[in-house]
Write a protein that binds this DNA or RNA. Structure first.
Lengths: 336, 336
DNA sequence: TTGTAAGCGTTATCAT
DNA sequence: ATGATAACGCTTACAA
């Protein structure tokens, strides 16, 4: 492959001039510029990213760490982060941490050694190496989707409280009063926030969300099944369920189906995320949409700002959720 | 960040010795090795990947080009490629080509400039720049999931003909005779192969798959809906449908549901891929499984073999599909 | 505006 | 077994 040296020789200029033409950081005489460009075309010269990265200390990549690739919401994040990253002229290194902090640490280390321009963490493990990264190597970092309440790191999150509010309002407006919630683990901040928004709003409408009506699990499909089994084993009366993820909602619906309980005729179900399948499934899932696209764009933007050493207007960016009404919710039997 | 120079100074050896300790390519005296390792630990030295990449002409990354991230089968591919790549000690650069050959070309160019150790193409666009890559820059390449019939490029594919056979056998065994197929575009080789396997097998059982019973579209959800509409508009009698992707199958089921036709009671539906949702959906989808994990592992393996300049045992690796029977297929009414 | 030359942090070659 | 030293291909002071 042709190098700058070759171009310089052909264009009868120095390598620095070639470099200037390419980076267009410094004015170059029209005539010499044309010569150089001609030589570049002739030799099909493409600058070596490793060399320029080494010199300028910028690998022209950003890294994205997700805890699990085969999960619809992370798919969305991967897609939109890739899009934003490319629109900045960079490339994306993707790593699956499997929620394992050792794998995460190893991934991060490689990114740092590669002089990435930034790292986006989507849901970090609790023993995350983020702090280490931020302190030791000064690589710009953004946390996406899961806020760390304790840390002073740029963060992009959903307004999780508001998500709970939207869900509660929707179910209450439909006339439900026997309502349950399937939540993520309470040691995760966003689970707590979602639940607070949900139960606060119910309370404002005179509905108490008792402990027996809250099932705590993870955000996966199986949690939905388990929750439904638990509610019925405990004999809890229910006409509507809000699941804190669409996957949970699908698990719940599958279990209801298995038990011969019709959705939404007998029980309404709604989720959170608005994954692709929410639209596709039959019946289509009523849910609270997470604005993944905006969140990812924001995250990349925050990386770029830090790269340019600009001061961030704020450390914490909270984006609003949106209620998407489809076909898994309706008024309870006998109401209205 | 500490560099080799720093380590060398602290350990009172030359940088080359440090390099040798790290690469362990050449024997180093036990004693000096320990000294060096101590210094490395003390300084928390991490070799710079850009520098070593520049010198050794290996970026320690491989690139993966997919046409669409938000598609369940590509999710699987992304996941399993990432896994295999990491187990080789490399990292993954992911690019979404949107089936746009210009975007693809640009992505590939950056990968080459980055001296990636290999590129995996998952379903290339028809005007793909693969050939260019293979010829100009000698970067190892593997095509995954969609074979190019014309080219002499290492390829990993599903045995698509066999997939058609498995689907046909299953439906025939259940007693179906009025069978339809929703296929991908016939200008894509794998669609044709799947269809051939399917119709050949039906024919062996005395069933002719007429043109009116084949709907050609893409592999997306909407195609399934369109196909069902078409079949019913045309008044084609059907008791079973094989869709060449799970997404198509879900589209078909949604449309059947909308029309009040029960699956599998009135019409059996089966797919191809075995995406996550096939298991999760209600009713769970009967399908032909694509061994994504094995395919991806193979693809990465082929890259590594090429990197080591080893001769490939073959250019084309065909992996077997597997029938997964779930709840969307059963014997037609009236039979057995 | 352009050229010279000194790195960036490694690895590879050649001595010793 | 170890050390000097020259690359790798680019950017960036500093000079001219």
């Amino acid at each position: 492959m042709a190098s700058m040296k070759d171009v310089a020789r052909l264009a009868k200029v120095s390598v620095s001039t070639v470099s200037r033409v390419i980076s267009r950081s410094v004015p170059v005489d029209e005539k010499t510029r044309l010569q150089v460009e001609k030589a570049i075309r002739k030799l099909q010269f493409k600058p070596n990213l490793l060399a320029s990265g080494l010199r300028s200390k910028s690998g022209q990549v950003i890294g994205l760490a997700v805890p699990e690739i085969l999960h619809p919401s992370f798919n969305a994040i991967i897609k939109y982060v890739e899009e934003s990253v490319r629109s900045e002229g960079l490339q994306l290194i993707l790593g699956n941490t499997h929620n394992d902090f050792e794998i995460e640490a190893q991934f991060i280390e490689s990114l740092v050694r590669r002089h990435v321009d930034g790292i986006i963490f989507s849901r970090v493990s609790d023993q995350s190496s983020i702090l280490h990264v931020v302190n030791k190597s000064h690589v710009p970092v953004v946390v996406l989707d899961r806020a760390l309440d304790t840390e002073d790191i740029p963060t992009v999150v959903l307004d999780n409280y508001k998500a709970g509010v939207l869900a509660a309002e929707h179910l209450v407006m439909l006339g439900h009063r026997k309502i349950a919630c399937v939540a993520g683990h309470s040691n995760i901040l966003l689970s707590r926030e979602r639940l607070s928004g949900f139960s606060d709003t119910l309370r404002q409408h005179g509905i108490q969300l008792g402990h027996d009506r809250v099932y705590e699990g993870n955000f996966r499909y199986e949690t939905g099944k388990e929750a439904v089994q638990k509610f019925f084993t405990d004999g809890v009366e229910i006409t509507a369920i809000w699941a804190q993820s669409d996957l949970i909602a699908f698990g719940a619906m599958a279990e209801l189906e298995r038990m011969g309980i019709a959705v939404p005729e007998s029980i309404s179900v709604m989720g959170l995320d608005d994954i692709e399948f929410a639209r596709i499934a039959v019946p289509a899932l009523t849910t609270v949409k997470q604005p993944f696209e905006d969140m990812c764009r924001k995250a990349v933007e925050l990386i770029m700002l830090q790269t340019r050493k600009e001061k961030l207007p704020s450390k914490r960016f909270v984006l609003a959720p949106e209620l998407i009404v489809r076909n898994t919710t309706r008024s309870p039997r006998g109401s209205l």
